[in-house]
Each structure stands twice: as structure tokens, then as C-alpha cells.
């Protein structure tokens, strides 16, 4: 058990950040933590940025994480991840799905999407560890891009002191019945992405 673990999941509406944070918060509960989770609905469903914050701890008060205090940042989309630099500290761990979704200013040619190296630099220079996760590519290989989120959770799970069975049990409870096996497979795929596993 850790004193506290604070997670931020950042992505784009429709990417499954809410499902991923639902899984993450339930896993924390199964692992014996006090947990809280916060997210923003509403306008963000229409292709805007979406963020979820999940907190595990002995006793959690605020559903929101403080700046400079995130332990893990999971970026489901590269640009969305880069918006959360203020929440990092020198021991934060950052996982970013190597996947770009262009906002309208970019698709219409008015702005440029930042370079991968620039995004990596912004995040890695403020964090303890930075890792690209090829979740989107792996999800497409599994036949469904929507699995990228669970693959990201799989990668994260390899760092945390919670049995994979707990994760798989929660996934089975939260995803639609006909997608359970596929999601479990995605989770294992992500979990194996930890180097040396």
C-alpha cells in the first residue's frame, strides 16, 4: 500500500477516458484504498478535451489533484497529454499513447500540431520518467481502436502493486459482456509492454 497515488487521464471525447478512469477507481477500491474520481462531462463530449482524475489513498478528501502532485499522467492523445505539465513533479511517471487527433485549428491549417519530440521534451523534462506507449497501433492490431485506453491501463498496471486478476475482474464488470474477452486481451497486451516483461 502506498500513502497516496494520484492519476490523471487526458484524452479526447469518445476515446474512452471515462471508462478507463471508472476501471482505475474501482481497482483502487478493490485494492483497499479510499478512492475518489472527478471528471467533466457536458460540452466535452463533442470532440473536446476530456480529463479524469483518480485518487487512491489512505484517506482522500479532494476529488481534484493539486498541481505538481500527480504520480501518473496517462495521455490517451499526445496533445492532450501536453496540457498537463503543471501537474507533474520530478517523480511523476508519464505514459503517452502515440496517437494524434488533430483539433480543428490544425485540420484547417491555421495551427500546427506540435512535433512528437517537442511534446516528449515538455513532459519528460518535468517528470521522473516518460514513456511512449504504442497503444493505438496495438489496438488496431486487436481490431478495435477503442481498446487503446485499456491497453494504456495495462501498461500502467505493470507498475502498480495490484494483482492482474483484480484488474481483469473489474474490466469484466465494467465493459459490455460481448467485449469482455477483447478488453482482457487488450489489458494483457498493455501489461506486457513494460520493458523486460
Amino acid at each position: 500500500m502506498y500513502n497516496k497515488i494520484d492519476f490523471i487521464i487526458a484524452g479526447v471525447g469518445g476515446q474512452g477516458t471515462i471508462l478507463a478512469s471508472d476501471i482505475l477507481v474501482e481497482v483502487g477500491l478493490h485494492a483497499g484504498y479510499d478512492v475518489k474520481k472527478s471528471e467533466v462531462h457536458g460540452m466535452s463530449q463533442r470532440g473536446g478535451g476530456v480529463e479524469s482524475q483518480v485518487r487512491w489513498g489512505e484517506r482522500v478528501y479532494s476529488p481534484l489533484i493539486e498541481k505538481g502532485k500527480a504520480d501518473y499522467l496517462l495521455g490517451f492523445e499526445m496533445l492532450e497529454a501536453a496540457r498537463w505539465t503543471e501537474y507533474l513533479n520530478p517523480s511523476s511517471v508519464v505514459y503517452v499513447n502515440r496517437h494524434k487527433m488533430y483539433p480543428p485549428s490544425v485540420t484547417t491549417g491555421q495551427a500546427e500540431y506540435p512535433a512528437e519530440t517537442a511534446i516528449e521534451h515538455e513532459l519528460s523534462s518535468r517528470a521522473g520518467r516518460y514513456e511512449w506507449v504504442d497503444a493505438m497501433a496495438a489496438a488496431k492490431e486487436l481490431g478495435n481502436p477503442a481498446l487503446a485506453g485499456v491497453i494504456m491501463l495495462g501498461r500502467l498496471s505493470a507498475d502498480l502493486d495490484v494483482e492482474p486478476e483484480t484488474w481483469l475482474k473489474v474490466i469484466a464488470e465494467l465493459v459490455p459482456a460481448k467485449l469482455v474477452e477483447l478488453n482482457k486481451k487488450a489489458f494483457i497486451t498493455g501489461r506486457k509492454m513494460k520493458k523486460g516483461v
Binding site: G13, G48, P104, P114, E122
Partner: peptide
């Protein structure tokens, strides 16, 4: 804690 936003331009993503 001292924190900072990204030094690069991040295009906004409105709904």
C-alpha cells in the same frame, strides 16, 4: 510547488 505550463504552443481543442 513551482510548476509551469508547456513552453510550446498547444492548439486548443474546442467542442
Amino acid at each position: 510547488p513551482t510548476v509551469s505550463t508547456a513552453d510550446i504552443e498547444l492548439p486548443i481543442r474546442p467542442p
